[in-house]
């Protein structure tokens, strides 16, 4: 276990010194600030853009702000995250940086554990800081009571991140280069979106965790419906991390 702690420390130092942490923080903070701002400014922008044509634009509420947040997180945020972590494992194998450590007695599984742990911390920090930012600005711009379950709606997004990270890590090990890992992740996400068309599977599909957040925001009942998807996501993620360990065990270094 000590080896896993040593490797986790190294992973953390890497994220810090290669500016991965900084870049992700800045990008997600921008998302966090931009979400309520866009909701606030969109009606004014629409009016201005139509050049005097009168249309009825409803007054924005906190719901619009949160809609923007989940859109930004799930349509851009996760891909920025994937880009920053695309070569998470493949780079170490390609460059041979693991050779010195493995021959010093670093168990291969601790590579995956360390990377999963730091990756998860990064995800939580990214979506969390953006969440706090959006929450604060939403409360400031839209002091209404239309979004009662702010935290509950956020929970599935965090869990999806755990699943997403496991896909990213496995993809990064299977592929021999950075882009192969990204491609694998994009293909898996696309397949999950397609699987949403099968009605009976919807409650189990991890992609529901980033599709139904707005429903939870207004009615906590929606979260209970997502239990199967949350359990599926966690079980799948654990399975994928286990598979990643097994694949790395067999890799020539």
């Amino acid at each position: 276990m000590t080896a896993a702690v040593i490797f986790t420390k190294k992973e953390w130092l890497e994220s810090w010194r290669t500016h991965r942490f900084l870049i992700l923080t800045v990008v997600f903070l921008i998302f966090g600030i931009l979400s309520p701002l866009m909701a606030k400014l969109l009606p004014a922008l629409l009016k201005g853009g139509l050049g005097g044509v009168k249309i009825a634009v409803p007054t924005p509420t906190s719901l619009d702000s949160w809609t923007q947040y989940y859109k930004n997180m799930t349509q851009m945020g996760i891909y920025v995250f994937a880009l920053m972590l695309g070569g998470y494992v493949s780079q170490e194998i390609q460059q041979g940086t693991l050779v010195n450590l493995v021959t010093k007695g670093l168990p291969r599984w601790s590579v995956i554990i360390g990377k999963a742990f730091v990756g998860l911390l990064l995800w939580f920090w990214c979506v969390g800081s953006a969440f706090v930012m959006t929450w604060a600005y939403t409360a400031y711009y839209f002091p209404d009571t239309r979004s009662p379950h702010v935290v509950l709606a956020f929970v599935p997004l965090v869990i999806f991140g755990f699943f997403f990270l496991s896909v990213l890590v496995l993809g990064s090990i299977l592929a021999s280069n950075n882009y192969g890992g990204l491609l694998f992740t994009v293909v898996v996400v696309a397949l999950l979106y397609m699987a949403r068309m099968v009605k009976g599977w919807q409650h189990f599909n991890p992609i529901s965790l980033i599709s139904d957040n707005m429903k939870i925001l207004v009615g906590a009942d929606a979260l209970t419906k997502l239990w199967p998807a949350m359990v599926t996501a966690v079980v799948l993620a654990l399975g994928l991390f286990w598979a990643a360990i097994k694949v790395l065990d067999q890799k020539k270094l």
């Binding site: 190294k10 130092l13 010194r17 460059q95 041979g96 940086t97 010195n100």
Partner: peptide, 8 residues
């Protein structure tokens, strides 16, 4: 070709 972590 020994590979290290350049940031250390």
């Amino acid at each position: 070709v020994p590979a290290f972590y350049g940031y250390m």
